[in-house]
Design a protein around this nucleic acid. Structure first.
Lengths: 112, 112
DNA sequence: ACAAAATACATAGCAATGCAAGGTATTAAT
DNA sequence: ATTAATACCTTGCATTGCTATGTATTTTGT
């Protein structure tokens, strides 16, 4: 069994998938960073590190796929909430098409 | 529509998926490089460049997931045939499990 | 006859991004 | 008082597809 190879491979898979997952989890929702980590873990069993998520959220924001706002708390650190833009939703639809097509191909490959 | 973003994104998706696809296409088969490009295109509609495939085949060989042999032709350039090793097959099973689990999660995300 | 395309394999530099590690700050738990 | 949890942030490293370029031989087009 090739643990190291598969571990590196899953990291590469995440490089492709994480932005797609983040946009999908945010669709019709508004989450702050730490909460998003919890949601992603709940929905996909992927454990995404903060050092991965925050730069990704910033990149998606720079691409105008989502917007962010700070919300003060009664006590404690302010939270940065994220929500998809129209552009984000549209881009997500494109990604879904690509994903479904790709996955159909791979399903066929696995069956044969 | 976010053409450039989606284009870059699909390149990142490929970084995760290509080794999986190559191993899947090679399962129970033996192909040479150029032929593999054709098979992958046929099965997935992905157009993989030679400059991508040959280094990938070499990496997979270095990981002992496949073996290669040169076969002289009646005429023309010798062909380098590739076939999965036992280790390659076992690793492919691990990758399939991961993929199925990941895809199930994403399907649920897309439905909601 | 010659040029272009196809076939077949190869290499290098660049761009993109998850990961690990480290950082700040505040509150809660021990 | 210390540690852990919560919440956000930054950086350098490792990995790999892509593009461009290269070699070689045969086939196809002009």
């Amino acid at each position: 069994m090739n643990d190291l190879f598969v571990h590196k491979w899953t990291a590469q898979v995440k490089k492709g998938i994480l932005s797609f997952i983040v946009l999908s989890v945010l669709k019709d929702n508004e989450y702050y960073g730490y909460e998003l980590i919890e949601e992603i873990k709940k929905h996909t069993e992927i454990e995404i590190a903060e050092g991965t998520l925050y730069p990704l959220l910033n990149r998606l924001k720079n691409e105008e796929l989502l917007t962010s706002k700070w919300v003060e708390q009664e006590s404690g650190i302010p939270r940065k909430y994220h929500v998809l833009t129209k552009k984000g939703n549209d881009t997500l639809q494109e990604m879904k098409k690509y994903w479904v097509n790709m996955n159909t191909s791979i399903q066929k490959l696995m069956i044969k």
